[in-house]
Design a protein around this nucleic acid. Structure first.
Lengths: 339, 339
DNA sequence: AATCGGCCCTGAAACGATTCAGGCGCCTGT
DNA sequence: ACAGGCGCCTGAATCGTTTCAGGGCCGATT
């Protein structure tokens, strides 16, 4: 079965290839007669446009790449989902790449997407890739940073104010009477992590109370790393333990929770309060329902894609930083009788 | 900045375009001299192959579509991740589409992927799409069913034996002394769901005991639906409640758990044992660590992609059904003093 | 010395769409 | 009757790659 081309359609409809193309792309300038004849021919042959040829000639791609920091994190899945919904409205497909906090994979996917001449790239960056993105831009491939404020203002970004989020988080812990607060997170070259910590410090310093922030670094933002950190806390004598933990994200928090709850040595929130970040769907279903800083994840994805398309339509647009404020969701891991 | 083409490279290196193409695709048949000159030219110009042109002429696409049933389900994310790892080894990118159990979206993504002339499609089907896939096949686009046994043997598939899984699950519940078992799941046109139920019934009937299987249907395999079902169970007088629940997947199970635990009316596993399916990473971190039927999710994705590539290389290959056996993971939601 | 084969290279044709300059036919106004 | 304009269509050129028939060169064989 030879795949049918626009030429086959033209022959069957008794028109020229140009007319078929017009039917496909600018039907308003085609006569009723031609329009129906071509439509029938398309139907009859089961013709489907070859996007490679279209892209080659028209120079317009109908796919967008999304380089995701952590595919196992439900937060990012929500973001992707938001972008997908928006993309599908425009007949655009999303090329998907997981980096899992690995700069090598990040580069590989950018290479791949450059070969594909994607319309643009959404990326939650891990390494320092501004130069890489500059190069793509020079090639006409726009990029929008997701979940990360753009350092130098050369690219648009859609993110949450992580400093404010960290501040709000720790303010909540202080308000509920905590003074010895541990921040569990890492790696610190992730801007999200260091910003949240910075916010935490701001809250501690401006509280007017004596508040300690102790930093417990972990290797990655995963449940497993959270468990490891939890065990390390359990190893300490009771009096040396913090009275609250602010986890850099919910995966860490769930890991901590698991370690602490399983041990049966620690009461949450009585002895240690626990607060996460992202408010993933599983946070509410945890052993002790998890308080968390909610990010508007779907909206982030949707907005990022929308901005990307706007920029590819008009490359002269000035990059803009879109920042949402996270929202505190209080559950029983910080307040015993919370809803 | 005009994008550089293979012709620019050829000119700079002082060779013909054919030679450049050979360097790119069959370097073994090119002299050392030409090879280094071309490589330098590529480097210097920052040349990147245009995949659209390549695909147009060679007829070979370097992307694969993956139509996913439920992007919010960590199980599918693991499967995608497995496929991605395998794909990246072959320089192949994955086009991602979420259907969220919606036949319309499913069709839309298949259309999109057909326009792209993807190399093949991985799909965890929702609706009845065999005809659709037949058509793709006729066009030279192979398909592999994921997480779903192929009904008619016309396509390869990679899945888990859901009937056996359902049987093993209920056998475990019976062994631990349960007799009034509820199956919470739906919709039943999802083969995964009906197979798991069928397996549950087999176990009940062949147990030699008097075992009831009550079916509590839900609209979708989500945490929210699990919560709803949990509330419905709580509405009953205590004596009419089941003594074990087998949930069609872990999302449902986590929802049930959340509803039951929050109410503080039910002790798990004492009064009601709870068993899920998939063993997603969050199952272990739940309020009561969740027993579950583990699927080898990454391996499923990896295998599916591998089979897809084999079939696109040799379209004469006979479809084959790859089936893994799920594995029972016992935690405290079914056995009080489990690990 | 002539022939042959092997190795490499060349450059035009082809893939399937879009674009655009050009042309045809018809209506309108004077 | 004729110029001009409008609406619609045509078909060749083009995008950047791969492929492939053809050919040059050189050393080995007869």
């Amino acid at each position: 079965m030879p795949p049918t081309s626009i030429r086959d359609v033209a022959k069957l409809a008794g028109v020229s290839v140009g007319t078929v193309s017009n039917v496909l792309n600018r039907p308003e300038g085609v006569s009723q007669d031609a329009l129906t004849r071509v439509s029938h021919a398309i139907e009859q042959l089961g013709y489907v446009r070859n996007d490679a040829a279209r892209q080659l000639r028209a120079g317009v791609s109908s796919s967008v790449g999304f380089v995701v920091l952590d595919g196992q994190n439900p937060f990012f899945n929500e973001v992707v989902r938001g972008a997908e919904d928006e993309a599908s409205k425009h007949g655009i497909a999303i090329l998907h790449g997981n980096t899992d906090e690995d700069a090598g994979r990040e580069g590989m996917y950018l290479d791949l997407f450059e070969e594909q001449r994607v319309r643009g790239v959404l990326i939650s960056p891990y390494g320092d890739i501004v130069r890489r993105l500059e190069r793509l831009k020079a090639r006409g491939i726009a990029a929008v940073l997701v979940d990360r404020f753009s350092g130098n203002g050369r690219f648009s970004s859609v993110s949450v104010d992580n400093v404010a989020g960290g501040r709000m988080a720790v303010e909540h812990l202080i308000e509920t009477g905590r003074r010895r607060i541990a921040f569990v997170g890492g790696p610190f070259n992730l801007r999200q992590v260091s910003d949240r910590l910075a916010g935490a410090r701001v809250a501690a310093e401006s509280s007017g109370e004596r508040v300690d922030i102790e930093v417990l670094p972990v290797e990655a933002l995963t449940v497993d790393e959270g468990v490891v950190a939890g065990r390390r806390i359990l190893d300490r004598p009771k009096r040396d333990r913090p009275d609250a933990i602010f986890a850099a994200n919910d995966l860490i928090a769930l890991g901590l929770l698991q370690a602490l709850v399983v041990s049966r040595q620690v009461l949450i929130p009585d002895e240690i309060a626990l607060l996460g970040f992202d408010d993933i769907p599983f946070a509410a279903a945890a052993a002790v329902p998890l308080s968390s800083m909610r990010q508007p994840s779907r909206v982030i994805g949707q907005t990022a894609l929308r901005i990307l398309l706007e920029e590819t339509n008009d490359p002269e647009l000035i990059p803009r930083q879109t920042v949402y404020l996270p929202e505190l969701v209080v559950r029983q891991s910080t307040v015993k009788d919370a809803g």
